[in-house]
Structures are given as structure tokens and as C-alpha cells.
Design a protein around this nucleic acid. Structure first.
Lengths: 165, 165
DNA sequence: GTTAGTGCAAACCTTTTGCAGCTCT
DNA sequence: AGAGCTGCAAAAGGTTTGCACTAAC
């Protein structure tokens, strides 16, 4: 997969610089859902001189070339974007708004949705993104416990909690 | 719908200030998919003193209360967020990356997706967002024409076009 | 040797925060 | 009266741009 990305780039006359090799390797290997800043931190471990701007420029390039997908993950962690190499199979991202865990869903409804939109609107789909936020099974329990505690607490504390959210 | 929003707010002890009434009216009436800046511009026509910060604070509040949904529309227009009152029916947003037109899709695959994710993961869904980018039927034609033109153009122009995207 | 790509600093855009004063209930 | 809300100014966070220098092909 990594080498196919590299191939795609070179075909367009895009240079495979040392910096890009580092970034490409990191995006490809190090699991999913990196944001620019994390990628930058990781890249610096391999090349302390590599600049944050280069990270942004590389991500922009890969996005334009359709080699990575950009996610927001429901802005769980803030307003930054997350990236993942474009996988064979379209999938939805499911984000727990309490613990931040991200799960992926590959199911037939996604393909059906895509086909139906193409048919209904005569639309040519280039990018698709489904993000779902809520509570994972584990956090549902913990969450209801928290809500009870807040309800039982004196008013001042209650106000504080609202503000903190 | 507007009055039900107002009711929801007052129930929580949230005050219905002049500024909020203006913003609520604008969000409810003026079609869909306003971003904070547009909303601010519109609001200023009704009250020149209304501050941009108040717009952000109001949107944040409505989002927290689950009364509006936040969209990105595939970052078509930049990194700002768009808002719409939460509708009875979940829907996907389909954005043409050439002309910016946004269409809405209400179809059974969306409900199916939701049910399946709840079942498969035991996940409690609070927010769901599906955004699809590509070319609308109208722009597909224009787009292929543009691509041909670029291919026919001399190299220097070609480079310029790539940069501009 | 060219042309694309990098680093650096500075700008940019959107959104948030601190605080004093105002206002809704 | 008093908490909640607003406006203003300033800061923050994430990302982009201009430019001179460097490196890939």
C-alpha cells in the first residue's frame, strides 16, 4: 500500500523527498487517525529539522491526490483534522464522546447509501464521510452514574459542571 | 419549531435575550447551513451592536443543548462550521465540490446504518453526520470540459491551474 | 541545471477567554 | 437583587503564505 502511494506520487512528477518518505511511512504504519500535530511530533523524532509546515503541505498534497482521507471525528479533540490512508473499503467512524475511543464500521448500509445517492441524484461521489458520536457500551454505564452524581450534588457544583462541558 | 426551541431553553433556566431571539429567528428561518460569520452579518442588520462573540456563544449553547447540528460540508468553503436546526429526520449532506450546492438525502439506508451500529456495538448514538462530496450532475459535464482544456493547454498554464486548486 | 520542495517567520482565519458592565427574571 | 448574558479586547489554536535557500530528478 505504501509503495502504491509512492508510485502514484512519482507518476505525477511529485518528488519523493526525505521528508515525504518519513511522513508517508508514519501515516501508513502508525495506526489510524493522526492529526497534523501528532504526525509532526512523530516526524521530529526521525528528523529534528523537519518543519511543521512541511507536514501541512504534505497532508494537503496527499488529500488533493486522494491518497488520504480527512476526518474530524466529531471535533472530539478540538478543531484539528485527522488523516488516514484511503482504505479499500469505505467505513464509518464511531466516536465515543466520553472516552474518545474510535471504532470503525464497515457495513452494507454504507454501500447502499452510496449507490442510492448516485442513482437518485446522478451524483458522482469522490469523498464520503460518516461520523457518529455518542457513548460506547462501556461509557454508557459510567455516564449514567456521573449524571446521577451531578443531580445529587448541591446547586453550585451543578453549575460548575455545566460550564466545564 | 422555533417556539419549541425557545421552550427548551427557558426550561433550563436559560434566558431568552434580545440577541438570542434574533439569532434563533435567523437560524430557524433563513434556510439552511449558515456559518457563524454569515449569521453574524445577518444579525448585525437587525442589531448593529450585536457582537460576533455572542454568535459563537449562542451557537455553542444550542449545540450543547442538542438544538442545532454542526456540519462541515466537507470543508468546501474553508474550515468554518455550519449549523442547522435539528430536523425530525436524519439526513446526509451532499456537497458539490465544484459549485458548492448542497443537497439533502433522507433515505432508509441512514436509519438502517444507525440501527445496525447500535446493535453491533451497543453504542448509544447522540449525533450522526454523513457528508458526501463530489460533482453534481450539472457540474460533471462542465468538469470534464475543464479537464480537457487543461490537458490541451501548454505546460506553464497547466502548472498554474494545479497550484490554484 | 531546473523546478519543485523546504524551513523560517509571519500572517491568517476561526473560535475562545477574561473581565467589567448590563439586563433579564 | 443577583445570576446570567453581553460587548470589547485580547489570546488561542490550527493552518496557510511569502520568500530565500536547498535538493530531487
Amino acid at each position: 500500500m505504501l509503495s502504491s502511494i509512492k508510485g502514484s506520487l512519482q507518476k505525477q512528477g511529485i518528488r519523493l523527498t526525505r521528508q515525504r518518505q518519513i511522513l508517508l511511512d508514519l501515516i501508513d504504519k502508525s495506526g489510524q487517525h493522526l492529526d497534523a500535530e501528532s504526525l509532526f511530533q512523530l516526524a521530529q523524532e526521525k528528523d529534528a529539522k523537519l518543519n511543521r509546515v512541511t507536514v501541512y503541505r504534505t497532508l494537503k498534497l496527499l488529500k488533493q491526490e486522494g491518497l488520504v482521507d480527512e476526518l474530524d471525528l466529531m471535533h472530539y479533540g478540538g478543531d484539528q483534522h485527522y488523516y488516514e490512508t484511503r482504505m479499500k473499503q469505505e467505513h464509518a467512524h464511531i466516536i465515543c464522546l466520553r472516552c474518545g475511543k474510535v471504532e470503525e464500521f464497515f457495513g452494507e448500509p454504507l454501500q447502499k447509501l452510496r449507490r442510492q445517492i448516485e442513482a437518485d441524484f446522478g451524483f458522482q461521489i469522490l469523498l464520503a464521510r460518516t461520523e457518529i458520536g455518542g457513548y460506547c457500551s462501556h461509557c454508557q454505564v459510567l455516564r449514567s452514574r456521573e449524571v446521577e452524581e451531578v443531580a445529587a450534588a448541591p446547586l453550585k457544583v451543578k453549575a460548575k459542571v455545566r460550564k466545564a462541558s
